[in-house]
Design a protein around this nucleic acid. Structure first.
Ligand code: DGT
Ligand code: MG
Ligand code: MG
Length: 572
DNA sequence: GCCGTTTTCGGCCCGACTGTTTTCAGTCG
């Protein structure tokens, strides 16, 4: 859906330009519409053709006209006029850390500074000295902002999770803390995370701030106050810490988890109810109604507690009011992980270790995955040697098979095949030989990634979902999202198509509960419940696809029939 | 520019930190 993204980008440009002009609410109106376009499940031109543009949240008469103009002309005259009036460098100035629309405009209008480079030169030439409101400290800050390297890119969720949990552990080592949570986009399980947001309660906030800002990995202190500090790590990654009293922990967690748009909607709702919501609690006048837990905060607003993964202002507040929030998957629902890699040439010991790691987590089933060069003979030996050594855990054997791999040459059959694509798009023509008939198949290591951030390219993910749906092939939700499988947006679409879905940790040698936890969070973000996920059952396999047999299929050992009530696939 | 179980016009979330401010503006979360 290229035009959705293009129009969203044009609207965001307009928003930035209007910011520079000092407009108050219009910029947010354009950003809201841009976000709606990003969230749209279909190409915007389909809405335009049906005359339904105005039904998109944040699109009214004026913006609908601009969408139509772009679809017709490939440009929006209003944007072009603004862009001609305001040098792009002024927008760049506004985006420097610590500078905003007011400063950028003043620099431009009063001092003819039209970009970061010009700002640095002006400062070095002393042109800012004595200008009202620009004292020495501010000028120094401007210069630093103008010469600092560009801010680091967003981090894929899984990496943010590792950095974040490491940081929490480091902080706990140095100072006693009551409660600590990672909040922000990480807690919401966004596929990409900009900064890390930490919330704590402590009887001694200043001690916590001191410990936080002096952590060895801290390169620079951006802000430091009694309740809030911001630092940059050596990596350039920003971390925000907020400390609040224990009785405000729930309200603060609600605030710091966001999203911003969710918070604004919630607080507007509170206003209507005669209430005020902030990070310290819910209040009516000077009476405090809630604050210790998030559930309390939502209840005070007449809402069911909204899972963090859904807090994006995409209708979840109305759903919470109506009691229509979905029952989401939780880690405890899973019977086991279906994607634990065994190393090349793994023997019985390694396989047994992997199985035991799963059993020790209380799992009832594990999918052990052989590397692509595995052979039926080697697999036969491995399975025999592992034998009945394991108790209380069912092993399902899978093998990764490349698209062009020769068909699996004979018995014994594995329990499932992880078919790995060789290119970015589904191929035309006959189905691959890598799989084989009669065996459940999942597309694995599917890379739909658009930007290296775990977010899928909507066009390609739709193509793969179509391809898999037509063949009864399952799709995978790994902790790395679109790098290796579905992200939450495409998982939502796949669920609507009724595809078999598996939530996996995609780990090496051992079942990794932390990776599984992240994958579950992504599944929750997709709105998936236990009924949508195959591996909630210890018989998680799904019907085998229809692939062209390369040779008569070997006898297939199916330890158990797939559960009843499975969805039927349809041919295209 | 959008939007409506108080509004079709008047609102549009609320607070922390910093700098230069003598009472607050700007930026950010
Ligand atoms: N009420 C309110 N809350 C905000 C605002 N801006 C940010 N927050 C809250 C909600 C955010 O999720 C949280 C953390 O802010 P961040 O800027 O780190 O955003 P977030 O973590 O959601 O996304 P990120 O991946 O860091 O870009 O603070 C705001 O303008 N108003
Ligand atoms: Mg954040
Ligand atoms: Mg933050």
């Amino acid at each position: 859906m290229p035009s959705n993204a293009e129009i969203a980008e044009r609207f965001r440009e307009i928003a930035d330009l209007l910011d520079v002009l000092g407009e108050r609410f219009k910029p947010e109106a354009y950003r809201r519409a841009a976000r709606s376009l990003d969230d749209l499940p279909e190409d915007i031109s389909a809405y335009a053709a049906r005359g339904k543009l105005r039904q998109i949240p944040g699109i009214g008469e004026a913006l609908a006209a601009k969408v139509e103009e772009y679809l017709r002309d490939g440009r929006i005259a209003y944007r072009d006029r603004l862009a001609a009036e305001i040098p792009s460098g002024v927008v760049a100035l506004m985006k420097l850390p610590g500078l905003g629309p007011k400063t950028a405009r003043r620099l431009w209008v009063e001092l003819q500074i039209d970009g970061p480079q010009a700002l640095r030169e002006a400062i070095d030439a002393g042109r800012l000295a004595g200008v009202k409101g620009f004292g020495d400290r501010k000028v120094a800050l401007f210069r630093e902002a103008a010469t600092a390297p560009a801010p680091v890119a967003r981090l894929p969720l899984w990496e943010a999770y590792e950095t974040g949990t490491g940081l929490v552990a480091a902080l706990r080592e140095r100072v006693p803390l009551d409660r600590v949570e990672l909040a922000g986009s990480l807690r919401r399980a966004r596929e990409s995370v900009g900064d890390l947001d930490l919330l704590t309660t402590s009887p001694n906030p200043s001690k916590v701030m001191e410990a936080f800002t002096t952590l060895p990995e801290v390169r620079e202190i951006r802000l430091k106050g009694p309740t809030k500090s911001t630092v940059l790590l050596a990596s350039g990654r920003q971390v925000d810490l907020r400390v609040v009293p224990a009785e405000s922990f729930g309200a603060a967690l609600q605030y710091f988890t966001g999203s911003k748009e969710h918070n604004v909607k919630l607080r507007s709702r509170a206003q209507r109810l005669g209430l005020r919501v902030n990070e310290y609690g819910v209040n009516r006048g000077s009476t405090r109604l809630a604050g210790a837990t998030e559930a309390e905060v939502y209840r005070a607003l007449g809402l069911a507690e909204i899972p963090p993964e859904l807090r994006e202002d995409r209708g979840e507040i109305d759903a919470a009011e109506a009691g229509r929030l979905p029952r989401l998957l939780s880690a405890g629902d899973l019977a086991g992980d279906l994607h634990v890699h065994l190393p090349p040439g793994a023997g019985a010991e390694e396989a047994a270790d992997a199985a035991r790691s799963a059993r020790d987590l209380g799992h009832r089933v594990v999918g052990l995955v052989l590397p692509p060069d595995a052979t039926p003979e080697g697999f036969g030996r491995l399975r025999r040697d592992v034998g009945a050594a394991e108790t209380g855990l069912r092993i399902l054997w899978g093998v990764e098979r490349g698209w062009k791999a020769p068909a699996w040459g004979g018995a014994p059959a594995v329990d499932f095949v992880l078919l790995t694509p060789s290119g970015p798009d589904p191929p035309e023509g006959p189905p691959p030989a890598g799989g084989f008939p009669g065996v459940s198949t999942v597309l694995a290591h599917l890379s739909l990634d658009r930007s290296g951030l775990g977010e899928s390219d909507p066009v390609r993910s739709e193509a793969w979902i179509d391809w898999a749906a037509a063949r009864g092939i399952a799709l995978e939700l790994p902790p790395t999202a679109a790098r290796d499988g579905l992200d939450s947006t495409s998982a939502r679409a796949a669920r609507e198509r009724g595809l078999p879905l598996v939530v996996t940790g995609l780990s090496e040698r051992r079942c990794d509960p932390k990776r599984l936890q992240v994958a579950v969070a992504l599944a929750r973000r997709a709105g998936l419940g236990p009924a949508d996920v195959r591996n909630v059952s210890e018989s998680p396999l799904w019907p085998a696809p229809e692939l062209t047999p390369a040779r008569p299929g070997p006898p297939v050992e199916r330890p158990a029939a797939p559960s009843a009530g499975r969805r039927r696939r349809s041919r295209p």
